[in-house]
Amino acid sequence: MTDQTIAHQVETFNEGFTAQIGPELSAVFDGEQADLRAAGVPSSALGVGATAPDAPLTDPKGAATTLDAVRAGTPTVLVFYRGAWCPYCNLTLRTYQQELLPALQERGAQLVAVSPQTPEGTETAIANGELAFPVLSDPENVLAGRFGIVTEPSAAARAAHTQLGFDVADSNADDTARIPFPSVFVIDADGAVRFADVHVDYTTRTEVATVVEAVDALGALAR
């Protein structure tokens, strides 16, 4: 268990990561993040009150399912993450496993994470965080597209990724570099979005306490 916020963990990670990759590559990623913040959350992103769309998904074994089937009328915290190649995603999912999942189980809600990776990439993400909640593939970003949160790394960032020995497209099921903005949506039992938090800067994430507060608000709405 960790008693640190995700933001604090990211700050600690960044110190080591910057030292590891050097100032040139660090400047590329800093520039990408600044551009993303300047552009802001896309107007297409679903907000509170929208009906959560359905889309086909794939489990880690390659079996087909859908978001509606996974939700099954249960209050759901839906997490979009970029992939197992993203250290910020791994850090966040691990924290959600340790701290958020028990709180949701106490409240009768579930946690579901989705990325555009291949099922093999999903298995890697599960192993990285020892995750015990549904982690699914959105093979062509269909679900992320319907939530209005699809983006892709800048050309400069992809070139930096290549220097670091990987390419996002190699991890994605559709061989593109399209990825979702890291996002959390709280969906009530009837399928309505009751909380939406889209992070255009992929080094920032929704804190556990914020998600729990949003889930607790579902109970207040029901009363």
Rank of each mutant, 00 (worst) to 15 (best):
M1P: 15
T2E: 10
H8W: 08
H8P: 02
F13L: 11
G16K: 09
A19F: 00
Q20I: 00
P23I: 09
S26Q: 03
A27G: 13
A27F: 07
G31H: 01
E32S: 12
E32T: 10
A34C: 01
A34W: 00
L36Q: 08
A38N: 00
A39C: 07
V41L: 07
L46N: 07
V48L: 04
D54A: 12
G62S: 12
A63Y: 07
A64P: 00
A64S: 11
T65S: 08
T66C: 14
L67R: 12
G73P: 13
T74G: 11
T76D: 00
F80A: 03
F80M: 03
F80H: 06
Y81M: 11
Y81R: 12
R82K: 05
Y88A: 01
C89L: 06
T95H: 05
Y96N: 11
Q97G: 12
R107Q: 03
R107I: 10
Q110A: 08
L111F: 04
V114R: 01
V114L: 02
P116T: 01
T118F: 08
A127M: 04
A127Y: 02
P134Y: 06
V135E: 03
V135K: 06
L143H: 00
A144Y: 00
R146F: 07
R146D: 09
I149N: 06
V150G: 08
V150H: 09
E152V: 04
A157C: 02
A159E: 10
A159D: 06
G165F: 13
G165T: 08
V168P: 08
V168C: 12
A169P: 03
A169E: 08
N172F: 06
A173E: 10
T176H: 05
P180H: 07
P182E: 10
S183E: 02
F185S: 04
V186N: 01
I187N: 08
I187F: 10
D188V: 12
D190Y: 01
G191R: 11
G191F: 11
V193C: 09
F195P: 05
H199M: 08
T210S: 15
T210I: 13
V215A: 05
A217W: 12
L218N: 07
G219E: 13
A220D: 14
A222T: 14
R223V: 13
